[in-house]
Design a protein around this nucleic acid. Structure first.
Length: 209
DNA sequence: TGCCAGGCCCTCTTTAGGGCCTT
C-alpha cells in the first residue's frame, strides 16, 4: 500500500464492551467498522462476540446487547481474527480512540495478532476544532454538526457510521475554514496528538514549514 | 480490607488535581 492510499483510506471503528478496562478483565462484545476510501464508504464490518461470561445489567441497558443475544454469538477469538484481516494495512479512526485502542490491542494480543496502521482520535480533534460545542460526546457532536442519524446509539456499527460522518465533517471544515486541501491522515494523526495546540496555531506551523 | 481505567488537557499548574470521554 502506498502512502497516498493510506492517507485516503481509513477504517472508522467502535467497540461495545463489558466495561471500561481490559486490564480489569473487561472484554469486547461487539465490533463495528466502516472502511472509507476518499470519503466514500466501501465496506462495513459488524459482529457480536461472546466474551465467555455474563454481561452486567448496566451494559445490557446501555448497549441493548443482551446476554441472550451473546449466547449464540461466536467467541471473541474467532471474530477478532476476522477483524484483524479487515483492518490489515489501514489506518484507524475512533471517537476517544485511546479506549478502542486498548480493547483492540488486548483482544488482538489474546490471539497473537497485531495491526500495522496508525490510530487517530476524532474526539481530540473535535475538541480543538469545535470549541463552541456543548461537549464533545459523539451524540452531541452529531447534533452539533446536524449529521444524519437514525437515533441508534451505543451499538458498534451505528456509532462507527456516525463517527465516520463526523470525520468527514472535520475534513470538510478544515478545508473550508483553514483552506487546507484534503489533509492527509498522517497530518490529522499528528494534530490529534499535539498537546495544547489549537487547530489554527497547529495549521500555521504546518503552513510555515 | 477496600478499592479498582487511562489518556488528554486545562488551570486556581509543573513537587497537582480534576473534568472529560469511552463501556
Amino acid at each position: 500500500m502506498t502512502t497516498q492510499q493510506a492517507a485516503n483510506t481509513v477504517i472508522v471503528l467502535d467497540f461495545e464492551t463489558t466495561g471500561l478496562s481490559p486490564n480489569m478483565g473487561d472484554r469486547a462484545i461487539e465490533i463495528g467498522a466502516v472502511k472509507m476510501d476518499n470519503g466514500i464508504v466501501i465496506d462495513r464490518f459488524q459482529q457480536l462476540m461472546n466474551p465467555g461470561f455474563r454481561v452486567s445489567s448496566f451494559i445490557e441497558g446501555y448497549t441493548g446487547i443482551t446476554n441472550q443475544m451473546l449466547q449464540t454469538a461466536p467467541g471473541c477469538d474467532e471474530v477478532m481474527d476476522q477483524f484483524a484481516d479487515f483492518i490489515a494495512g489501514y489506518n484507524l479512526v475512533a471517537h476517544n480512540a485511546s479506549f478502542d485502542q486498548r480493547f483492540l490491542d488486548a483482544e488482538l494480543q489474546q490471539i497473537g495478532r497485531k495491526y500495522d496502521g496508525k490510530f487517530t482520535c476524532s474526539m481530540l480533534i473535535a475538541r480543538r476544532l469545535y470549541q463552541q460545542a456543548p461537549n464533545h460526546k459523539l451524540g452531541t457532536l452529531v447534533d452539533y454538526k446536524n449529521i444524519d442519524n437514525d437515533g441508534v446509539f451505543h451499538r458498534a456499527l451505528a456509532d462507527s457510521e456516525m463517527t465516520a460522518k463526523l470525520w468527514l465533517n472535520i475534513l470538510e471544515d478544515l478545508n473550508s475554514d483553514y483552506q487546507i486541501s484534503m489533509p492527509t491522515f498522517l497530518m490529522m494523526q499528528k494534530l490529534s496528538k499535539t498537546a495544547k495546540a489549537s487547530v489554527p496555531s497547529f495549521l500555521r506551523k504546518q503552513i510555515n514549514r
